[in-house]
């Protein structure tokens, strides 16, 4: 489904991605981990086609996203959802208008059908009753959930999630992760989650990809990653003891 083939990216003299290759199967949810500056968010933007690699290819369903233009690219992006780190909500629109926006702009669904779909999505993320609020009136966690509803409203086949829990308090973090897990089970999308949320986030993903110096250092299951004896991974996890909880992938 997603094949990242030997991509390289530099910003000026700084090499951010250095020959990175990953293959993600259809319906698989992968967490991308790595220290700051290891190229996680840059990788996500490459997969979405927002950044172009200096070398290498990214194939989505066999199509090179950077070779697509116009309607073909728009139609591929129509199948994608992207949760930005800051939410990227349109601040001049209400929550309802934000979530409805992809449907009003990209589909010919009648207004009532859009309303039903939006309200259902807002209910799923626990934001019923907040539809008339503006993003500036929402808390950080609510913005993340509203952005999630907007990303999910078109039932994406490919979902990219950039640091969904950064800046949230522990209870909200778990709620957001649970939401991602439920959405993944419901929609069965192929997804990439860039996160620092260890170990909680690893419980909801199929595999963990660990980046080091712009390359894939390892791709393992969440449990194997947490119990790894590799010194580089142990160092990343914060010492020999590692995190206290070692979760198992639930269902899916």
């Amino acid at each position: 489904m997603i094949q990242i083939q030997e991509i390289h990216k530099s910003f000026g003299r700084q090499k951010v991605i250095d020959g990175l290759s990953i293959s993600i199967a259809k319906g698989e949810l992968v967490a991308v981990l790595g220290s700051s500056g290891s190229g996680k968010s840059v990788l996500l933007k490459h997969v979405a086609g927002l950044l172009k690699p200096d070398r290498g290819k990214i194939l989505l369903d066999g199509q090179d996203i950077h070779g697509l233009r116009g309607k073909t690219l728009a139609s591929l992006r129509n199948r994608m959802g992207f949760l930005f780190q800051g939410g990227a909500m349109f601040d001049s629109m209400t929550v309802f208008e934000n979530v409805a926006f992809p449907l009003t702009e990209r589909t010919r669904l009648p207004g009532e059908e859009i309303r039903v779909k939006v309200m259902k999505e807002l209910e799923a993320v626990g934001l019923s009753g907040s539809e008339e609020k503006y993003p500036s009136q929402l808390s950080g966690g609510m913005i993340k959930r509203a952005a999630m509803a907007r990303a999910l409203v078109r039932d994406p086949e490919i979902m990219m999630i950039d640091e969904p829990t950064t800046g949230l308090d522990p209870a909200i973090r778990l709620a957001v992760l649970k939401l991602i897990d439920e959405s993944h089970k419901r929609l069965k999308f192929t997804g990439i989650v860039v996160t620092h949320e260890i170990p909680s986030a690893l419980a909801i993903v199929d595999h963990v990809v660990f980046l080091k110096a712009g390359k894939v250092y390892s791709k393992t299951s969440g449990a194997d990653f947490l119990s790894s004896s590799d010194p580089v991974i142990r160092e990343f996890l914060g010492g020999d003891e590692g995190p206290e909880i070692c979760p198992q992938k639930q269902g899916g």
Binding site: L50, A74, R77, F84, G86, A88, M89
Partner: peptide, 14 residues
Amino acid sequence: ITEQIDALELMGLN
């Protein structure tokens, strides 16, 4: 700067 333009493009909008 708030990535709203990126969000527009990722919705398949020009």
